[in-house]
Design a protein around this nucleic acid. Structure first.
Lengths: 115, 115
DNA sequence: CCAGTTGTTCGATGTTCGTCAAACTACGAA
DNA sequence: TTCGTAGTTTGACGAACATCGAACAACTGG
């Protein structure tokens, strides 16, 4: 499990961000992460196989939307809210609001237990 | 040339909009249309075949981002700015600003002549 | 009616994407 | 070391996509 690459601020491309946010599951994940807290992989509940979830998390990470941290065998993911805001002001907020309004990503949830 | 279908306000889905805006050429087209004016098909200059351009214009139309009007053999396209603003407030503005900032879609231009 | 202009539609092709199962890696506990 | 947990990588598959050239349809002008 090598440490993953995270794009720098100026390496974040708009089309990559848009493409990453054009999948309902990934939008759902971003909505969960929008609380600003760090979430464990195991908390995330999505109707896909774990390899698929890993794939989605990778797409989000590669697009510069999230940051992944490892701690032992667990890994934690957090939204790069400030970075996104710096790079593309207002974009994330607008997408988040639009997702609420549209109900996209409702299929994604959090496990019952608290962190 | 049958009249194309345009989605109603509440038929516009976020993922469709995001997917449509994840292609540099389509972002470039939207940037051109951001002046609010109606543009003729023939004005649009993009480094793709005309069938491909037609395809992109259709994706934008199907996503509810643009509206196409026919007049004889010509057709004109305009941004559905107000509709988008109503459905997803702030989204289009943020994407447009981000596109400026990122320089996406610079390959798309307008023909020299005025309308 | 015939030819030119304008844009759409139709295969065809190569690429990317979402998805899964299975194999793999890394760490912690017994 | 051996087992189990946590997450990644790989390989495969069908679906969707971007792209093109060519055929087609609709209108306009001789």
């Amino acid at each position: 499990m090598k440490q993953a690459h995270h794009p720098e601020l100026d390496e974040i491309s708009l089309t990559a961000v848009m493409a990453a946010l054009s999948d309902p599951i990934r939008v759902g994940l971003v909505r969960l992460l929008a609380d600003g807290r760090e979430h464990g992989w195991g908390e995330l509940r999505a109707p896909v196989a774990k390899s698929t979830l890993s794939h989605h998390l990778r797409v989000l990470r590669d697009a510069g939307i999230t940051r992944t941290r490892q701690e032992g065998t667990r890994c934690f993911v957090v939204l790069r809210r400030d970075d996104l805001e710096t790079r593309f002001p207002g974009l994330l907020v607008a997408v988040l609001a639009a997702a609420e309004c549209d109900g996209v990503g409702g299929q994604v949830g959090l496990a019952a237990h608290a962190e």
